[in-house]
Design a protein around this nucleic acid. Structure first.
Lengths: 347, 347
DNA sequence: ATGAAAGCGCTAACAG
DNA sequence: CTGTTAGCGCTTTCAT
């Protein structure tokens, strides 16, 4: 409230315009610039950001919309975005759109951010609906939008993603080599990324000339919190029990599901990887902590976040305005939960 | 950029001052208010927040400073703070002060937030140093400050905390009942909360007439990331090997440490809880996923976050300006990692 | 209860 | 390269 640009200008013996130019790195003679800088330091002046953004319409802040913070998969992304933004003098404003993945809530928080006049928005793992109903495109018309893990080809929308179909194929190829032919697929409902994986799963089976058995595809709802774990254990246990022909391998779309699978499998008196090989997805901290340590797909979340943040800054600073699509290839991380198919199935 | 308060005023046939009064809930005749409101709706006008905060110095946003997002212990707090703030129309601006717990970085990000003119700051788990060097007090002189888990008695600082000393005593009493007399204590360096627990640990031993064996107190550095797990396993393994008299129980200040302890203990050929009972702290999702499921202390992080956010809003809106100290009592959650002391030690 | 007018602290033409 | 001069969109006395 105390010291303003005018005071600095007077102290340095220049006009306010010159001070403004100095702090915005515009052309000012070196000598003058120095005088201004020392005046700033002497008076400990910092430009008032509200006034600045009132003029420019920009506030060096970017909104980050994410389904949930308590999911380690997301928190790693957020942390890397935040680090990257901060390093460049931007402020990341984080809002969670709710792990229930409500389309409407996602739209709401995004709009709040726009009203708050963030300079751009990074949206992580949007809902299927909002990826397809034109919402993201309309947001992108108002300000720079970078989407992490969304659908490609949206007009004006920058996309940074991991090629999950590719990861799925890596998993299946690997299991195939180990001799597995009957591979179960555990997924969440209403998740765009699960759709992508399932499509790849189906295509791979067709290309290999294997049939896709609907009984091998299981949908779970709300597997975001460990509280659900007990229910899942039970569900998996019953699912296995009811199966005429059991799978020799199982892929779970996320690690909490993978854990639920382990529990259910063990409850059914089977072992991992002795009876059933298990592959997870995301390589969260859980994966290496599990027993047996989980074979999984590393999504490079940190890299995704960093790349998205950099794209955003580039666009905000007028570099590379053409929306891009940057795709990372996931990596298969082999640990102890997968093994060659057991002999007794071959006999 | 398009529609301004002036347009609304014209549309409603009033002055801009009246429109301003309406959106700030000041005295306006009911009829006039209605006219203004419908004009707002017709023109879809939303006040420009930058202009507003330029005048008022307030922007309905509160800064949240937290050491790390990838730690589930913190992400639960953040999520509850954020939910609570959003519900009241505030925007939570999150910055992480770095899991390396650098005093300086914590101060830096806090100051950035102040420059950004947040209305208040919620600071979670500040460093020991900043709790004691007057920094927090100086922040509290500038704007409302609510600290989660800090030291009591700081002038002008609101404190919301869990009584960790109490939790520690609950743990020790419980282990005592099971017959344990030699209880190891694993802690992180440079953590205010670990100091609190250790003090309680020491006091409890004295009150019980037990000696505090320095060999039972082990300090680890940087146990925030699972990458460190291998190193910890090794360290614990060596520590046990070098011990003349082994502990029958072990308390770890956080759950990653507890996991490291399990690994080290098992590497040493001992079992949990057969040879050594293990108690963790925080009740993160890891705790119930571990094998054996971990006995631990629930810190009620969600409640802490919610309470802190509410305190902040109360202060921001001029209710209850006297700084308070609100303390929650932690809860001991008994699972499978603790058991009565083995008979062979009694013989 | 309402209006007129004076800024909040800064940026951006436009001159010089 | 630097200064002058208008505002950015809102709030807030001070009148009426």
């Amino acid at each position: 409230m105390a010291v303003r640009i005018e005071d600095v200008a007077r102290e340095a013996g220049v006009s306010t315009a010159t001070v403004s130019r100095v702090i915005n790195n515009q052309g000012v003679r070196e000598k003058t610039r120095e005088r201004v800088i020392s005046a700033m330091e002497k008076l400990k002046w910092e430009p008032n950001l509200a006034a600045r953004s009132l003029m420019t319409g920009k506030g060096r802040s970017v909104g980050v919309v994410i389904p949930s913070l308590t999911n380690p998969y997301f928190s790693e992304i957020v942390e890397s975005i935040e680090t990257c933004l901060t390093a460049e003098g931007y402020l990341g404003i984080l809002v969670s759109s709710g792990s229930d993945r409500s389309d409407e809530r996602e739209r709401e928080v995004t709009e709040t951010l726009i009203k708050r006049q963030v300079d751009g928005i990074i949206l992580v793992d949007g809902t299927y609906e909002n990826n397809h109903n034109g919402f993201l495109v309309s947001v992108a018309r108002m300000l720079p939008l970078v989407v992490i893990n969304g659908v490609p080809g949206l007009e004006g929308v920058d996309l940074v993603m991991t090629d999950q179909a590719r990861g799925m194929v890596k998993v299946l190829d690997y299991l195939y080599e180990l001799g597995h032919r009957r591979i179960a697929f555990f997924r969440a409902d209403r998740e765009a990324s699960a759709d992508v994986k399932m499509d790849a799963y189906a295509r791979w089976h067709i290309e290999k000339g294997l049939t896709v058995d609907p009984a091998m595809i299981v949908r779970f709802t709300e597997v975001n919190r460990s509280r659900i774990l007990g229910e899942m254990e039970e569900a998996v246990y019953r699912w296995i029990g009811a199966l005429a022909e059991k799978p020799t391998a199982l892929f779970a779309c996320n690690e909490l599901m993978a854990l639920g699978a382990v529990r259910g499998i063990e409850k059914a008196g089977l072992t991992v990887p002795g009876d059933i090989s298990l592959v997870g997805h995301d390589n969260t901290p859980y994966a290496s902590l599990l027993k047996p340590a989980l074979t999984t797909v590393e999504m490079k979340m940190g890299e995704l976040g960093r790349t998205a943040a950099r794209r955003m800054i580039d666009r905000l600073e007028g570099r590379g305005t053409e929306p891009q699509r940057i795709s990372f290839s996931p990596e298969l991380i082999i640990r102890q939960s997968t093994a060659p198919v057991a002999d007794l199935y071959r006999k």
